[in-house]
C-alpha cells in the first residue's frame, strides 16, 4: 500500500516497505548475474590478444590505405552481379509472396487449411537466413549467381508474405462490404476493394526488402553464391588489404545508392 497513515497523517510513497525491498533485491541479483557472466567471459578470453588490438587494428588500417583504386576495374562485374542477385531475387519473391499473402490473410483466405499451409511456408522461409539458404543451394545447384538469386528469393518470401498478409488483414472492411453489395464477383472485390488499399504498403515493403537484399547479397559470395562477396573473400584470403578497402568503399557506395532509391520510391507512392 503506497498510502500509509503515520501519526494520523496520510503519507504517499512510490513503494511500500516490502515493494522497496523486492525492488532492491531485483537490482542486487541482476548486478550479481552481470558480474558472474563478466567473470566467465573474462576467463575465456585471451587478454594478450585484446590488449594489442589497437595496434593490430592500426596495422590492418595502414595496409588498407591507400586503397588500390586500379582494382576497381575488376569489381564492376561482381557489383553488377550483386545488384542482379538482389533485384531478381526480390522480383521473384514478390511474385510468389503476392498470392501467398492473400492465402495467409485471415480475411481473404479461401479455406483455413490453405491459410495454415501458407503460414507454414512463410515461417519456414523466414526462419532460415539467406546465407544458409545460399549454402544449401550452392551444394544443390552449384556455385554462381543463380544460387544467389534463389537464396535471396527464398528468404524474402517469408518476410514479404508476412508483412503483405498483415497489411491485408488491417484494411478497412467497409469499402469491401460496399463493393460486395454491388453484386461484384470475388475477384472484382479483391482488385477493386482490397488491392487499392494495400498497394502503397506492398510497394513500400517490396522496395525496402530490395534495399535489405542488396546488403545481404554482398555476403552471399562468401559461400560461393556469386556477387562481390567472392572478390571479398578472395582478397581477404590473399591478404590483399588494399583491395579489401576498395571493396568496402564500393559496397558502401552501392548501399548508399539503394537507400536513396528506396527512400525516393517510397516517398512517391504514398
Amino acid at each position: 500500500m503506497p498510502v500509509q497513515t503515520v501519526n494520523g497523517v496520510q503519507v504517499w510513497q512510490r513503494r511500500d516497505r516490502v515493494g522497496a525491498f523486492k525492488h532492491w533485491l531485483g537490482w542486487l541479483v541482476g548486478t550479481l548475474i552481470f558480474l558472474g557472466c563478466w567473470h566467465i567471459i573474462s576467463e575465456a578470453t585471451t587478454w594478450a590478444f585484446v590488449w594489442d588490438a589497437p595496434q593490430q587494428g592500426g596495422q590492418l588500417l595502414s595496409r588498407m590505405i591507400p586503397p588500390r583504386w586500379s582494382y576497381l576495374n575488376q569489381l564492376w562485374q561482381p557489383l553488377w552481379d550483386t545488384l542482379n542477385i538482389a533485384t531478381l531475387g526480390t522480383i521473384l519473391s514478390v511474385a510468389i509472396a503476392l498470392p501467398l499473402s492473400f492465402l495467409a490473410a485471415r480475411n481473404t483466405t479461401p479455406h483455413p487449411i490453405a491459410r495454415a499451409i501458407a503460414l507454414v511456408v512463410i515461417v519456414t522461409s523466414r526462419s532460415v537466413n539467406s546465407l544458409i539458404w545460399a549454402l544449401l543451394l550452392v551444394a544443390i545447384i552449384g556455385p554462381g549467381v543463380l544460387a544467389g538469386v534463389l537464396s535471396i528469393a527464398l528468404r524474402s518470401i517469408g518476410f514479404l508474405g508476412k508483412l503483405f498478409s498483415e497489411a491485408i488483414e488491417e484494411i478497412d472492411q467497409l469499402p469491401v462490404e460496399a463493393i460486395t453489395a454491388t453484386g461484384a464477383s470475388e475477384f472484382s472485390i479483391l482488385t477493386y476493394g482490397i488491392v487499392p488499399q494495400v498497394l502503397p504498403t506492398f510497394a513500400g515493403v517490396s522496395v525496402f526488402r530490395w534495399d535489405v537484399n542488396i546488403r545481404e547479397s554482398t555476403v552471399l559470395g562468401l559461400v560461393g553464391a556469386g556477387g562481390i562477396g567472392i572478390s571479398l573473400s578472395a582478397s581477404v584470403n590473399g591478404l590483399q588489404w588494399s583491395q579489401v578497402s576498395v571493396i568496402f568503399i564500393a559496397i558502401f557506395a552501392m548501399v548508399f545508392l539503394s537507400e536513396w532509391v528506396s527512400a525516393t520510391v517510397r516517398k512517391s507512392i504514398i
Binding site: 463493393i179 454491388t182 453484386g183 461484384a184 464477383s185 477493386y192 487499392p196 488499399q197 498497394l199
Partner: peptide
C-alpha cells in the same frame, strides 16, 4: 460512405457496375 479512398471519384462511381462487367 464506404468509398475506396485511394481510387478516384469516377472509379468509385463506376464500381456500382462491377456486378455487370467481367473481371
Amino acid at each position: 460512405y464506404a468509398l475506396v479512398e485511394r481510387l478516384t471519384v469516377m472509379e468509385n462511381v463506376l464500381s456500382g457496375q462491377l456486378g455487370y462487367v467481367n473481371f
